[in-house]
């Protein structure tokens, strides 16, 4: 776990804790947090900051009789029993073990890949539930290099399997590239196995150069 070298930006973690990321990006961050102790601790710090802000918030008075209505709804029942686990719910807040599984029925091995170019396959996941964003899986065969591209907005890329190398460095399982619209790169899958990435973007990729222009219609979402 300590081998993770590339992490989300502080602002991205803060926005995650504030509930301000679109669903696609929130899934990518939650999956990274599942693998990265340091970022999970940082995200929890920001949640604690959210708690501080809640205490400091200007209250909006509840309607007359709100507490009586509350007890009517709560009924005579006592608070529920704790589950068998002795762990308290606030030992952690982010529910990290399950973020991606809700979107990947049957796991990574059951993904229905669609070929989008030589050595490139993708699968778009349904995570457009609230606020715009596109979540997809990309599989790059070993040795294949994506054409140089920038992003129409911010893009988060998390490595799930294999590895790639680009102008920034080497990215392996758990590493996350937090790129904004000024960054351009051309990742190349390295190692023996295909590189599988989970990508959240707010806009389709923009390719530079002729090779990219030819691939663009296939990759553009």
């Amino acid at each position: 776990m300590t081998s993770i070298k590339h992490h989300p930006k502080t602002e991205t973690l803060a926005a995650y804790a504030a509930g301000a990321l679109d669903e696609a990006r929130a899934v990518v961050i939650a999956t990274h947090l599942d693998l990265c102790d340091a970022c999970r601790a940082a995200a929890r710090d920001f949640e604690a900051l959210g708690g501080v802000c809640l205490e400091a918030a200007e209250p909006a008075p509840m309607k007359e009789g709100a507490l009586e209505r509350f007890w009517l709804r709560a009924g005579g029942a006592r608070a529920e029993r704790a589950p068998a686990s002795t762990r308290a719910a606030n030992d952690f807040d982010l529910g990290l073990a399950r973020p991606l599984s809700a979107y990947l029925k049957g796991g990574l091995d059951a993904v229905q890949w669609r070929r989008i170019g030589p050595g490139m396959e993708q699968c778009v996941l349904d995570a457009q539930g609230y606020r715009k964003g596109v979540l997809r899986l990309l599989k790059i065969a070993p040795g294949v290099r994506l054409p140089k591209h920038s992003h129409g907005g911010e893009e988060l890329t998390l490595i799930l399997r294999g590895a790639y190398e680009d102008e920034i460095g080497e990215f392996r399982r758990g590493d996350l590239a937090d790129l904004d619209d000024e960054d351009t790169h051309s990742p190349c899958a390295i190692g023996e196995e295909p590189c599988v990435c989970l990508i959240a973007a707010s806009a389709p990729l923009r390719f530079k150069g002729l090779a990219g222009k030819i691939v663009q219609p296939f990759i553009g979402l």
Binding site: R44, E47, A48, G50, G51, V52, C53, L54, E55, A79, E80, R81, A82, P83, A88, A89, N90, D91, D93
Partner: peptide, 15 residues
């Protein structure tokens, strides 16, 4: 009953 005061504040949990 899932709340443990030694782990995080009430405000953080409720937030």
């Amino acid at each position: 009953r899932l709340f443990d005061p030694s782990k995080a504040s009430a405000a953080t949990w409720i937030y």
